[in-house]
Each structure stands twice: as structure tokens, then as C-alpha cells.
């Protein structure tokens, strides 16, 4: 049996419709990851030894275990401790938690590139710590990690495909439903691959445009 291009084109609209789910979840996840990642970075900067030791363990755990296992933990374990979440909420929390750690880690890398003289000057001027963070450090930091955040966004989009495993009806699950009716799984999977490819290429390209804007603004 040959490759049926017409069939592939006929299912694309349904897959694109399902992509709205992935995009919506990815946006929510990124917002949470950014906010929580920033908060985590500031907490770590307080350098409370016991707290940072705990955070270090959590980070090592998140980096050392598969995202899929983290999703299963949110889906199977959280209800067992009384947090009964819908599959969507469980999945979003797991990916957001995972992404938070990576955002904070890249912020740590970004911090190392900020000129120390500015902090000394701000302290000399008597700026309180929260002002130093809000007015001096964070704005530069966000600008610097734009490329990392763009990359993280594509990783989050890819991560949302895993939510099909816990019954979220996203692109992949929609594709599986279509394939089980049409018996053309290969074309259907190619279709969903194309959908993800386009989403992520758009993110990368718009990221590159944003970066060059930032670069221009800095001059």
C-alpha cells in the first residue's frame, strides 16, 4: 500500500484543531514555569543553607528522572495524597514543575554574566534588595535568557505530547483515535509530526526575530 497524501491532507484540519490544546497547555505551562522559576531563583539567592540543600536535591531529582515518570507521579501519586487533579491539571503541573527547574538553572547561568559593578553601585546608592532584583538584575537577566526561554518553550511544546499517555486529548491522542478508525496510522503520525514541526519552527523563528530586536535595542 502506498502513501496516501490525500488522506494525510484530509486529516490535517482535525490535527490542527487538536494542536490548540497543546498550544494552550504549553502557554499555561510556560507562564507558570517563568513565574515559579524566577521565584525559585530569588529564594536560592537568599542562600539559606538548609533551603538550598533541599532545592538542590529537588533539582537533581527533576533533572535525573524522566518527564514521563514525573507526569505519572502527578497523575497517580497526587490523588493518593488527596489531591484529585484532572489529567490536564496533573500534566500541566508536572511539566511546569519540570520546566521551572530548568528556567531557574538557566537563570543561574545568566546571573554569572551580569556585570558585578552594577550591583556594587546599586548597593552604594542604598537601593533595597528587592529593588536591586526588580530594577537591576531581573530585567537584564530576562533579556539575556531569551534564547534559552525560546528553546525551553519548544521543549515544553514537545512535552505536551506526553500528556496523551494520561488521556489528555491532544494532537497525538487525536491522531491515535483517527488512526484506529482509518487503519492508516503511518500517514496519521506523519501528520502529527508535521503539526509539531510547524509549531516549533514558528516558535524558534519568532524567537530569533525577538532576539535580533533585543540586540538592536541594546545598541
Amino acid at each position: 500500500m502506498g502513501f496516501k497524501l490525500n488522506y494525510l491532507l484530509s486529516i490535517l484540519p482535525r490535527l490542527i484543531g487538536a494542536a490548540a490544546v497543546n498550544i494552550r497547555l504549553a502557554v499555561i505551562i510556560m507562564l507558570f514555569a517563568l513565574a515559579l522559576g524566577t521565584a525559585l531563583t530569588i529564594v536560592r539567592s537568599l542562600k539559606i543553607v538548609a533551603v538550598n540543600a533541599c532545592i538542590a536535591v529537588v533539582i537533581s531529582f527533576v533533572r535525573g528522572t524522566p518527564l514521563l515518570i514525573q507526569i505519572f507521579i502527578a497523575y497517580y501519586v497526587l490523588p493518593a495524597v488527596g489531591l484529585d487533579l484532572s489529567p490536564e491539571v496533573a500534566g500541566v503541573s508536572a511539566i511546569a514543575f519540570n520546566s521551572m527547574v530548568f528556567v531557574s538553572e538557566s537563570m543561574r547561568g545568566g546571573l554569572a554574566t551580569i556585570d558585578a559593578g552594577q550591583i556594587e553601585a546599586s548597593t552604594a546608592l542604598g537601593l533595597p534588595p528587592h529593588a536591586i532584583w526588580l530594577k537591576v538584575v531581573l530585567p537584564q537577566l530576562f533579556r539575556r535568557i531569551v534564547p534559552v526561554l525560546i528553546n525551553e518553550a519548544t521543549i515544553v511544546v514537545k512535552g505536551t505530547a506526553l500528556l496523551s499517555v494520561i488521556t489528555v486529548v491532544d494532537v497525538l491522542r487525536t491522531a491515535q483515535q483517527i488512526a484506529s478508525a482509518s487503519y492508516r496510522p503511518f500517514e496519521t503520525m506523519i501528520g502529527s509530526a508535521l503539526v509539531f514541526l510547524v509549531i516549533n519552527l514558528v516558535i524558534s523563528l519568532s524567537g530569533r526575530v525577538a532576539e535580533s530586536r533585543f540586540a538592536a535595542a541594546r545598541v
Partner: peptide, 22 residues
């Protein structure tokens, strides 16, 4: 490189899983 990097691994897996018999 760009194709493989921009598609979730789970999708790559299913493409190969259904593509090889195809």
C-alpha cells in the same frame, strides 16, 4: 537535524513504529 529536534520523541517513536511495517 531540525526535523528530529522539533518533533516530540513520542511522535518520532510512533512514526518509526508504524513506518517500518509500512
Amino acid at each position: 537535524v531540525e526535523t528530529l529536534r522539533n518533533i516530540p520523541f513520542i511522535i518520532i517513536l510512533f512514526v518509526v513504529y508504524y513506518g517500518l511495517p509500512f
